[in-house]
Amino acid sequence: MNIVSNLISSYNYYIIIFLMISGLFIVVARGNMMKKLVGLALFQTSVYILYISPGKILNGTAPILRDDFTIYSSPFPHVLILTAIVVGIATLSLGLALVIRINEEFGTIEEDKLFEEEL
């Protein structure tokens, strides 16, 4: 019973961990540079949820100051994650640009084939 209630009460963290591991797994296991970047994006996104979800307070409203409400969710993680999303976009777009250049120079984006050319 305890385990079940634990699972239900913190299900968000299980989802986060699942996303995190699957993202990291894709980065490690796939040889296609494009797919690696997809995995990386998934990994980063899971961290966004890791920050956002503890900020939510049950029965709390969006953090807008009004007299009608007294309980607010914390706006702090959202601010941080906005920054992190910008960083993530920059990284991803640079990664994609590099993949395009690699494809132009080597004619392939499969890591196995690239390493055959002796790196």
Partner: peptide
Amino acid sequence: LVAAYQYLIMGTI
């Protein structure tokens, strides 16, 4: 290019 890509993946992780 490949070196930069590898560093990007590792560095971002």
